[in-house]
Nucleic acid binder design. Structure first.
Lengths: 223, 223
DNA sequence: GCAGTGAATGACCGCCGGTCATTCTGCGTG
DNA sequence: CACGCAGAATGACCGGCGGTCATTCACTGC
């Protein structure tokens, strides 16, 4: 009697279709302006049903965001599969992240919610834990590459891999966030091309965490 | 007949006392959890009165945030008054920013609202413009110093001053934001001391925007 | 003291996140 | 085939909140 398994599958697919609807609405309206009623309508379900699968609006938001996180991780894994040198892998990581920002802007915007001051208060423990786990695997991907680089002498050994990863991620993501929201302001009021700034910032940071050997290879790869 | 002027003064002081109340509540609860009713009660005014002085909750939030911005600018100006060398001034700027983060954490948290994706949609034009102006003067303070450094040969001339300022500000503020919200998570799950990471990141970035001469002076100042 | 003006009030509105008594559905059983 | 029951789905409803506006209040200048 495979009834129980079928029920399980149906439950999963229902969860997915709810995320589909939520994604549509969140992408269009953002967290604040989106309403659970609209998501329910888009999903062709009653509002109450949404709450059978997700505790709160924020939980649902996080579920959508997680899709983005997983997508990004997949893209990073694809880079690793190419078996490039450490330096080139790092360059590709940065390019991939920038590409993700450009191609999947809606997902990227959702990441911002993560850094909200009272963020953790608004989300259920379970969802939070799942998110942490996903995040953790992303960090591990990058630190793995960096540790290899340290062993082969292209990455500075006096800095910890995870610290390097945090600095690179944080800097470039916050710059992209700024590009997203204030590009025009900066172009007009301060005549700055933030896209250029992002490229410069990435290169400066990559250089500064590399040894001379690494820097040499880097400059050959970024002309 | 100084009546009109007195009225003007009273209006101003009323606005200030509303901000006082709003600050108290926003500091305690954050933007989402704070309510206009509570702010009104704290200010000992009716809710309707708040709306005679500020268009919306977000506008009021921004008014409080602006106090923080002005405070930070004052602290930066104090650094400039000390007439240090360019390199030392930049080091002090970074230290001042970190100090601001530690001493005035509540103001700092409010800055986060700035980067929210649909932020500009929630705030009145007038408030936004005032905010931009204040921001602009902050950028100018820093770029002034950087330009001097370029002239005297401690700051790289192949990077624009405003770009350097943006990179430094963005990197360190986003790292601080992370420290604020995820310090314990990183310490426990990844055994990273983000405060250390911040110091490292600041030094790496400062180094990377300086000439050899600048770097030399920097290393003498950061032991 | 008496208009008149502009500030202050708080009852009220509409909206939205979230709940829960009720209804519906389909499976297993007699 | 009929029946009963578990659990899924529903949507009317609730409380709270941002924002409004007709009414009241306070002060000024005549």
């Amino acid at each position: 009697m495979g009834t129980i398994q079928r029920k399980e599958r149906e439950k999963e697919s229902r969860k997915e279709s709810i995320i589909d609807a939520a994604q549509k609405v969140f992408f269009e309206k953002g967290l604040q302006l989106a309403t659970m009623d609209e998501i329910a309508e888009t999903a062709e379900l009653a509002k109450g049903t949404l709450y059978l699968y997700y505790r709160s609006k924020e939980d649902l938001y996080l579920a959508v965001m997680m899709r983005g996180l997983i997508l990004l991780r997949t893209m990073f894994e694809a880079v690793i599969t190419r078996q490039l040198t450490t330096v080139r892998t790092m360059v590709e990581f940065m390019a991939t992240f920038t590409g993700f920002f450009e191609q999947h802007r809606n997902y990227f915007r959702m990441f911002h919610f993560f850094n909200t001051p009272q963020f953790h208060k608004q989300v259920s423990e379970a969802m939070m834990a799942e998110c942490d786990r996903c995040n953790h695997t992303l960090w591990t991907l990058v630190t793995g590459v960096l540790d290899r680089g340290k062993a082969e002498g292209t990455i500075r050994t006096d800095l910890s891999a995870i610290e390097i990863a945090v600095v690179l991620w944080t800097s470039s993501s916050s710059l992209m966030m700024r590009i997203d929201s204030q590009r025009e302001l900066f172009r007009q009021k301060l005549t700055v091309d933030l896209d250029h700034t992002l490229r410069v910032s990435n290169i400066l940071l990559l250089e500064s965490v590399m040894t001379d050997a690494g820097r040499k290879e880097l400059s050959a790869n970024t002309i």
